[in-house]
C-alpha cells in the first residue's frame, strides 16, 4: 500500500525465479530450518511478519510450524513506519499498516520475516520497532529472496529462500496466492 511506485514493466522481459512447486519446497525447507534450530524452545519463539509484504509469507510459515510441531507458536505483525529513516524525504507521506503484537517480546527468540531483502533499511527500522515490545533474547531474519550486492546496511539474513543477483531497474515480484504463487523478475521499461 505505501511505497509501491507505479512502475511500467516490460512484460515480455520477465523471468520466473521460483514457480509454484519450487516455492512450496522452499517455504517447507525454511520452516524445517526454523524447527531444526528451535524445536527445543519452540514455546519461546515468536514469528513476526514485516508489514506489508512479509505478512503472507509469515502466515504460511507460522501455519506450517504449528502443523509440523503440534505446538502453538506466538505470531504477530510489525509495521515499522514510525521508525523509518526517510520521513520527510519522500514525496508522499508514509501511511502505516497495522501492527499487531499482543504479547511481550521480552526473552523470546524472534524470527523476523519479509519477502525480499534489498537495501536492509526496512529491517533496520523493524529491529528498532521490535524493542518497543520488550528485549528479545535473539532476533533472526528470514527472507524468501535475498537480493545480493544491494545492501546499504550491514544486515544479513539467517534463513534465505533463494539468493539472486539483480540489477537496479529489475524488480522482484512475489505472489503467494495459492496455485498462482510465483516469484518473478520484471524489467522496468526505460
Amino acid at each position: 500500500m505505501r511505497h509501491d511506485k507505479k512502475f511500467q514493466y516490460n512484460m515480455s522481459d520477465r523471468k520466473i525465479i521460483l514457480n509454484v512447486d519450487q516455492l512450496k519446497l522452499t517455504i517447507t525447507r525454511l520452516s524445517s530450518e526454523i524447527i531444526e534450530n528451535h524445536i527445543e524452545l519452540i514455546d519461546k519463539c515468536a514469528i513476526i511478519g514485516m508489514q506489508p509484504r512479509g505478512v503472507q509469507l509469515s502466515q504460511q510459515i507460522h501455519t506450517m510450524l504449528e502443523y509440523e510441531t503440534g505446538y502453538s507458536v506466538k505470531y504477530g505483525l510489525l509495521d515499522s513506519t514510525f521508525f523509518r529513516d526517510d520521513f520527510r524525504r519522500r514525496e508522499d507521506v508514509i501511511i502505516p499498516n497495522k501492527t499487531n503484537i499482543e504479547f511481550s517480546l521480552e526473552g523470546l527468540n524472534v524470527i523476523l520475516i519479509d519477502d525480499v531483502l534489498f537495501t536492509g533499511r526496512s529491517v533496520r527500522s523493524s529491529l528498532d520497532a521490535l524493542v518497543s515490545f520488550g528485549r528479545p533474547n535473539s532476533v533472526e531474519l528470514l527472507v524468501l529472496i535475498d537480493r545480493r550486492f544491494s545492501r546499504e546496511l550491514p544486515i544479513q539474513p539467517k534463513y534465505i529462500g533463494k539468493s539472486i543477483d539483480v540489477i537496479e531497474n529489475e524488480h522482484v515480484v512475489v505472489n503467494l496466492d495459492g496455485n498462482n504463487s510465483s516469484v518473478i523478475l520484471l524489467n522496468e521499461k526505460s
Binding site: 514510525f82 497495522k98 520497532a129 518497543s132 515490545f133
Partner: peptide
C-alpha cells in the same frame, strides 16, 4: 496506528 503505539510497553517513536 498511534493508538496502538500508545499501548506498547515503550510508547515512544
Amino acid at each position: 496506528s498511534f493508538k496502538e503505539v500508545l499501548n506498547r510497553p515503550i510508547k515512544k517513536v
